[in-house]
Design a protein around this nucleic acid. Structure first.
Length: 272
DNA sequence: CTATTTGTTTATCC
DNA sequence: AGGATAAACAAATA
């Protein structure tokens, strides 16, 4: 589920835990989400008594920095989420990492839940940024995601279908299935178009809309998960008999780049 | 029982 | 080489 806006929403959910020492860590080292952590129990031992100092999001990745130079990486996969519980919370079977903070009678409990376990936790101790947090590509809403930068990205993958390009986390970090469809919709481009078939004007429009969708998503969903406006493709795309909010045409659903893709057959005409 | 899912990685094929 | 495709991961939901 989580794309960059949902990831930002979840990042903020753990902020009430800032600056309160960890009293106890509950985790199941067997859980698949620890597959990249050699000794999951190290997390529990290292963090006891330490405080959450910072929480960062980049694309679909999260990093929680603790005192003692400990860094916890979180990728939410398809069904992962972060939430807050009351003191005395009893972890349920899909909670894989739980922080009980001090004072235990009043501090919130931080919970990472992921039923499908496509999510992933990472761990690094040291004063430098964790290796998995270095050299991350610019996000669509970043200052560095300039038009020349984006146009160069497009040029370097001429034969890639638009949807596959938008879903690639090395190029467009944080964009997932719904944002990719929203971007194609607003740019009036067919998601299966090869990048080389886009006119210069279409490429510029694509850049503009990519940035716009990222910013809008952060504002609407990243803040408080408000329902998306009816003018977006989002609320129509899975709706039974969903129609294009621009012209009322029945939306098409087909598999493009391996993912179910919704688009309007009237305003998203192939460029070729 | 079936098919679906807002993600990623790997193998295999073309 | 680079991209398409399918499978795998695993559980809930319809």
């Amino acid at each position: 589920m989580p794309e960059l806006a949902e990831v930002e929403f979840y990042r903020k959910r753990w902020l009430p835990g800032l600056r309160q020492p960890v009293a106890k860590v509950a985790l199941n080292p067997q859980a698949r989400v620890f597959r990249e952590v050699p000794r999951p129990q190290d997390i529990a031992h290292a963090l006891r008594g330490e405080c959450l100092r910072a929480a960062d999001a980049h694309g679909k990745q999260l990093r929680f920095c603790f005192s003692g130079h400990h860094q916890l990486g979180v990728h939410l996969g398809m069904t992962g989420r972060l939430h807050l519980q009351k003191p005395g919370y009893v972890p349920d079977r899909h909670d894989h990492l739980v922080f009980f903070l001090e004072p235990t009678s009043s501090a919130p409990v931080l919970v990472f839940t992921d039923p499908r376990m496509f999510g992933r936790l990472r761990w690094f101790s040291g004063p430098d940024p964790a290796p998995w947090w270095s050299d991350l590509p610019p996000q669509p809403m970043d200052r560095k995601f300039t038009r020349p930068y984006f146009l160069a990205l497009l040029q370097s993958h001429p034969r890639t279908p638009l949807k596959a390009f938008l879903l690639n986390q090395d190029r467009c970090p944080g964009i997932g299935n719904w944002m990719a469809d929203e971007i194609c919709f607003r740019a009036r481009l067919h998601p299966a178009d090869r990048l080389q078939s886009l006119s210069p004007a279409q490429q510029r429009e694509l850049w503009r809309r990519t940035r716009q969708v990222a910013r809008d998503a952060l504002r609407v969903i990243g803040t408080d998960w408000s329902p998306p406006p009816e003018s977006w493709l989002f609320p129509h795309r899975w709706r039974d008999g969903g129609c294009c909010p621009r012209d009322g045409t029945a939306l098409i659903r087909e598999s493009i780049a391996g993912r179910t893709t919704a688009f309007c057959p009237v305003c998203q005409i192939p460029a070729t």
